[in-house]
């Protein structure tokens, strides 16, 4: 059986800068897979390339067998991929509900508003607040909740724990495990591999715009020295 997402020989550029140099990896349906790597390794650019947000990209990105590398971002979203961007992307001119309802529904199978409010009670309480008036953790919850509504089955989460307090990081971990339980597939970019270990099935390690290793989560402990070398920690 082929993977839900297959990335082959992916190259991407920002202007003249060649950022990705032939990235290759797979994500199977129902998995949580992380992209680990140092700053500047190309993790976020890989996410953005999958979502069509990098203007110049070449190679193959097949989602459920469909080639998406040359599609516009809105068509990629309609194919069933959703992104929670690194900077969260909460809109200041929209209130919490408007932020939540902004992405269009692309398929059945997304969470209902009731399910979202059960999972993230703070969002309901702050429904009329300006989106950017929420705390960092609440904004992150909103950014994740927003894409759970759409029915997209592959969720791209770019550093969802960045800059958050440990208690909020734990909460996001619980949320990702709950998402996985409900059958969603998650591609996660993380700097914090200790957090990644609590949620992921497999880890791809990136360096200088290529994937240099794949470590199953069960073998993470055994590969800790190698991982420290890769990440420079």
């Amino acid at each position: 059986m082929s993977a839900m997402l297959e990335v082959r020989d992916l190259n991407a550029w920002y202007g003249e800068s060649h950022i990705l140099h032939g990235v290759e990896f797979d994500v199977n349906e129902g998995e949580v897979v992380t992209l680990l790597g140092r700053n500047g390794a190309g993790k976020t650019t890989t996410m953005k390339s999958i979502m069509g947000l990098v203007p110049r990209r070449e190679g193959q990105i097949r989602f459920k067998g469909q080639e998406t590398v040359h599609l516009r971002p809105d068509l990629i979203a309609r194919a069933g991929i959703a992104i929670c961007p690194e900077e969260r992307g909460i809109f200041a001119s929209l209130d919490v509900t408007e932020n939540l309802m902004l992405p269009i529904k692309v398929a059945d199978g997304g969470l209902s508003l009731d399910e979202i409010y059960t999972l993230f009670p703070n969002i309901k309480e702050r429904a009329r607040s300006q989106g950017t008036k929420l705390s960092g953790g609440e904004q992150q919850m909103l950014a994740i909740a927003r894409i759970l509504r759409t029915g997209a089955r592959l969720l791209l989460l770019d550093e969802p724990t960045e800059g958050l307090a440990p208690v909020i990081v734990q909460q996001i971990g619980r949320t990702i495990r709950e998402i996985k339980k409900r059958g969603f597939t998650v591609l996660l970019v993380e700097q914090n591999f200790r957090f990644a270990a609590t949620v992921a099935d497999r880890h791809y390690v990136m360096d200088h715009g290529v994937v240099v290793d794949m470590i199953p989560n069960a073998q993470l402990e055994a590969n800790m020295d190698k991982l420290h070398d890769y990440l420079g920690v």
């Binding site: 979203a77 309609r78 902004l102």
Partner: peptide
């Protein structure tokens, strides 16, 4: 309003 703030992200939301 969202598109005036961040059009690429709005497009990534299927619009």
């Amino acid at each position: 309003r969202a598109a005036t703030e961040n059009a690429p992200l709005v497009q990534a939301f299927g619009i």
